[in-house]
Every structure is written in structure tokens, then in C-alpha cells.
Design a protein around this nucleic acid. Sequence first.
RNA 1: GUGGCUAUAGUUCAAUGGUAGAACACCGGGUUGUGGUCCCGGAUACGAGGGUUCAAUUCCCUCUAGCCACCCCA
Length: 501
Amino acid sequence: MPRMKKKIEEGNRQIRPKGAKRFVRLRGMKDVLPEEYQYWNLIIKKAVELAKVYSFKRTDTPVLENLELYERSTGKTSDIVTKEMFAFIDKNGERVALRPEATPGLVRSYVEHGMFNLPQPVKLFWIGPLFRHEKPQSGRLRQHTQFDLEIFGDPSPIADAQLILIAYNFFRELQIETQIQINSIGCGECRKEYTAKLTEYYKERGKRAKLCGDCNKRLVKNPLRLLDCKEEKCIELALEAPQIVDSLCDNCRNHFIKVLEYLDDLDMPYNLNPYLVRGLDYYTRTVFEIWPVSPDPLRQSFSPLRQSFSEASEASEARFQPASLSLGGPASPELQRGERGETASASAGAGGRQISLGGGGRYDNLIEKMGGRPTPACGFGLGIERAVMKIKENNIPIKRDGEPDVFLAQLGDQARRKAIILFEELRRAGFRVREAFTKDSLKSQLEIANQLNVKYTLILGQKEIMDGTILIRDMESGIQEIIDYKKTKSEIEKRLEVHCG
RNA sequence: GUGGCUAUAGUUCAAUGGUAGAACACCGGGUUGUGGUCCCGGAUACGAGGGUUCAAUUCCCUCUAGCCACCCCA
């Protein structure tokens, strides 16, 4: 009797010892489970494919870098550096940090390896984890993954446009509708001028009293940020405020116009968004973000921001076109056309402000600042987890790839020994074959074969070994035949051909 | 970092001031050489700590975590 009991317990894996500590993930960290990984595979495949088409070379940098790298590049006053870094002192007393964004490491690498001696521009792409110690919420993790592209050594506006094109193609080919938000924040010179104008505007009689508390702080700390506040009264004021495009110097204005022209030529849907201001210190001229387009048009028009663009900006009439009408390019074959999910816009907040799927811009002064030669550059990053979220929201079914055709089941020690050899032969011959050699019973093996959705199961047992045969079972009909063991391959081949034809 | 809501099996959800149920999933059996359907059985949960109470999963507090809104961002 006690033996019986023990056997039952061993067979049940869910019994766990009392008192053993169970560990849970750290806050804001996520496991990517096998089921979700099919989306990751799809996205990474698309990212790599696109990057290669546009001549970007893959690269990688360490997760851990000197803390000062980020202080000097991202900015000592930026939120990312001041309050969001996983930073610590290592055993040598060195101040280090888990990378909070990709660009500084890539710039460091460019300078350190003397890539300015290579033919310019140097186009690099990168996929990897980033860490920010933020308060997590949906679409916001402490560790997330970005697909990142950088173009070093190219001052031309076509570089900016190409990055935007790639970002747009990426989402479009994953059947995620997006809209590009774009602005220019000028070079150091014209931005200084603009900031002065803006501050002056807000100092006019009665305006400061109308601003929310945050905005009053912004007025001193970072006036550009006054433009993207969500408070109704602040939006009202922002609508009347001078726009940076009017303050751009000739060079910056020409650059920006060229970028927009390229986007027009390519029929890309963008919003000239005078309120787009990005948080990192190093941006110059072009800045852009990729916003998802909510499948629910009512919800979209709910956005106070969106409305304000169309009222305030000349170039901002609804330019969005359905992705299927514009620029050609292959949609991912893994994606099947699916119904749009009813709940697709659930994640957008009450105000309809969509979380951005990606963003980037030009940073012409950064490389010099980081000890390199003066080198113009631009780049962008997009969040893989957020892309996964969108694909799931859209209920786009994913075609299963590489479904196995054959399952090999075995019964008894002798059969198992023969089966592991047969399995290798079949695999090497190119059959998509699966097994469960750790299972003893035919029942459980057939169960697995059924779950795998194979067309045929080969059954090899004691009896078959004696006779020099093997059973082949059609999983759909349940009909099985005894065939000559030596003809196993040809018999499977014959049946699979019939199946496909 | 600030504010609001939440926390029950692996998952999605119930009920209850007297220690808990379902569905799906899982394991076993019906069928020790035959899966998908069916039938039977089984294991598994009140996030952590403290308080009120004869008694707390239930009420209160703290912590932790999740969601949402800010800040900010991918």
C-alpha cells in the first residue's frame, strides 16, 4: 500500500514541498513564454529582413556600460539618467549601469572602433534589452527590447526619411496601422531662439495662472515640454503659442522640408506635429514618433492632441491612408488576413492618447560630444513588446510554420533502441518527424501525436520488430497499415505526396 | 516618484465573519498495443505581515505585486 501511494505522488508533478520558497519575477520584468515567442520570431525576422534590405549591418554592444557614458550622452538632466537607471558600483568601485537606451553604446562603439575610417555612412542595426527603473504598466516594463537602427556619418535628409520609411514598413508589413508624428526642433542655435520666444509668450499677462502646476515648473526647466501637456487649459495655450517651425534657421528649415518631401514622394502618412518634443538631450533637427492608429475611429477623434494638430497645423489634414493602398512591399507571409479585434483599442486611455511604438531623430552633435570626430547621425528605436501587444490586439492569426508530418511511436526497450536510429534516418532524409521517446505507453504517445497535428504516426513495437515491419497510421481516418520496415521512407513519401496533391 | 482601483487553483472567474466552488488546463483510470469524443477519479488557491473578533479568505492598517492615470518613455 505505501508503495502505491508513493507511485501516485511521483506521478503527480503538481505536489510541491511545503515551505520551499517560490521565487517570482522582479517587478516590471517579463518572461517570454513559448506561446508568445511565435510573435517574437515573426517580428525579429521582419526586423532583420528589412534592416538588411536597406544595407544595415547587425551589431551588438554590452548590456553593462560605464555610467558616465549615459550621463554625457542621454543627458545629466534627463529623466532616464536622473531617476530611471539601474546603476550601481561594481567590485572595482566603478560606476556602471544597465543600458537604458541603445544609442549611446552604439556611438561609443563607433568611436572606439574607429568606424569613421570606414566608408560613410555606417549603418548599424541592433536588437537587445534595455533597462529603465520605471513604474511598470501595460506596455511599459523595466526590461524591454528594442529594434534599433542608426546611420552614422550622413548629413542628408534622405537618411532621416529612410529611417522613417523603415519604421513605417516594419509596422505596415506586420499589419499594424501607424501614423508618423514628425517635427523639427532645430539645431542648438535656432532652438535657443525659439525657447526664448516661447518663454516670452507664456510670460504674457494671465497665462501663467492658467497653466497647471507641472507646466509652471516646465516653464523654467524645459519650456519645450509646455507643448505636450494634456491639461485642457494648457492645450488651449499651446495652440496659440509660437511654433518652432517658424523659428528654424535656413539650414534647418531646408533640411526639414526635404525630409517631408521625401515622405510625400513615398506617400507616407505623417502628421506634422509642432507639439512633438522628445525627452533625450541629444536630438537636433528631425524628431519623430510612430503612433498606432486605433482601429476604432471614434476613439481616435477623442484625442485632444490629435484634434489640436488638425486645427493648428496646415499640413496636418488627415493624411492617413490604409496601408494596403500605399507603397508596395510584401506583407509577412506568416500573417494571415484576420478580423480586427473588437477590443483592439482597449489599451488606449480614456483620452485616447496612444502609446508610441517607436521614436527617434537626428543627433548631429552627439558623436563629437562623445569624443569622436564631428559626425552627423540619426537613428530610431522601436519597442518589440509593444509591437507584440499590437499584433495580439489586432487578433491577427499566425500561420503555424513547420508543422510536423510524422510522429514516431515506440513500444518496448528493443523498439525504442531501433526507433531512435530510425528517427535520425528520417530526420536526415528531410522528414518533419517528432517523437516522445521518454513515454512508454502508446496511448500517451498517440496523444502527443494528436496534439502535434501530424498526418501520420509510425508505430514500432515488439511484434513489428519480429516481423521486420512497421505500422503506419493515418491520424485523420484512424486507418493503419502494416508495411515493410525497409520501405518506411518511400511509403511515407508516397503518402505525403498524395496528401499534398 | 504621485494618485485611483485590484489581489482566491496553472489560467479565467465564483461564493462566504464559522477556512472555499466551477470551467478550461494538468495527472490517473475506464482501454497494461491505439489519439482526437465520452465517462469516472485526483492534485493544486485565499499575495506577505500585523490589528479588530470567540472566530478573518471576508472588516481595518502596512508591505508587496498587478492594472489604470500622471511624470516620462519603446
